[in-house]
Simulated scan of single mutants.
Amino acid sequence: MFLLLLLPALALAADVRIHHRITGQPWSLRAELHGDHLETIQPYSQLIPPSYAPGARYQLALERPSDKDSNSWDLASVYLCHLSSAVSDTIVVHEFDGVPYALDYRVTPVPRDGSCPSLVSSISVPNTTISFSSARVPPSPALRAPPPLTPEGQVVPPVPERSFLQKYWVYIAIFVGVMLFASGPEEEAPAAAPRARS
């Protein structure tokens, strides 16, 4: 079964051909994309021999109209043994302004450690998804102003920060003075009134 996911907003402006092969074999056409529709598709199960060397890889290549030969194609690959248990595979064509520039390929499931299964069964035809991924330009970083320079080209050293006493000594002196003068001389206690004699 084949599932094609093409987002109309991300349709390619140029025609794209996707080729596939087992490492060391010649390339053959897997899919041909014209704008927002698929022209041809060939599953990889037709390509894979019944027995193959350990470590063999299944490769995909993105052919752009501007490419002169297969040496300039963008490549993606997976271990061939992972295709024996694959339930789905995904082809992602990366594009910028409608022009393709890269290709990603994934099969699922793949063991967490990436090892090949000990028993390789026959290669099945998985559900295939082809999608586009539009490149985004990252925001420009906020740059600080460059430090001031001396006429000799040296960085002007920053003014050293003053201590708490250096900053606020005037306020402290005023506060101490106000406290000294505001209290004034101590008042004498009133003299006790003389007792009347009887």
Rank of each mutant, 00 (worst) to 15 (best):
P190T: 03
P194Y: 13
A53D: 05
P43Y: 07
I130H: 04
L143S: 10
F96Q: 12
P126F: 00
Y44M: 03
A76P: 01
A53T: 07
A61S: 06
P141C: 11
L29A: 06
A182Q: 15
T40C: 09
S66H: 02
V176E: 11
S28T: 10
H34R: 13
P141M: 08
S140G: 09
S140E: 15
T150I: 07
A182R: 15
D36Q: 14
S163Y: 07
I123V: 15
A193C: 10
V155N: 01
Y168M: 03
E187D: 12
P151R: 05
A182D: 11
L149M: 15
D36Y: 05
P148M: 03
A196K: 14
L12Q: 09
C116N: 00
W27L: 15
H94R: 09
M1T: 07
L6C: 06
R64P: 03
L119E: 09
M179I: 07
S45I: 13
P139Q: 08
V137L: 12
L4Y: 09
P141V: 13
A142P: 06
Q46R: 14
T90F: 04
G24A: 08
D67A: 05
Y44R: 05
I130Q: 01
Q166C: 13
F96K: 14
T40S: 15
L29P: 01
T23M: 10
A86N: 03
N71S: 14
S85G: 06
N127D: 10
V92K: 12
P50A: 14
K167A: 09
Y171N: 08
G55M: 03
L80F: 01
A13W: 02
D67F: 01
V87Y: 01
R30L: 05
L29Y: 00
R17I: 02
S115D: 04
L119A: 06
E63G: 03
D69Q: 05
L5R: 15
L60P: 00
I91R: 02
P141E: 13
F2T: 14
L119Y: 08
G177F: 10
Q154Y: 14
V137N: 10
V99F: 13
R106Q: 02
A196F: 11
Y105N: 00
G184A: 07
V170S: 10
P100R: 00
R64H: 04
P185C: 03
A189I: 10
H82Q: 04
S115P: 01
P194R: 14
L119V: 06
P151M: 02
Y105S: 00
I174Q: 08
Y58N: 05
S134A: 13
R136L: 13
G55L: 02
P151K: 05
G153M: 09
T23G: 12
H94L: 11
L10N: 07
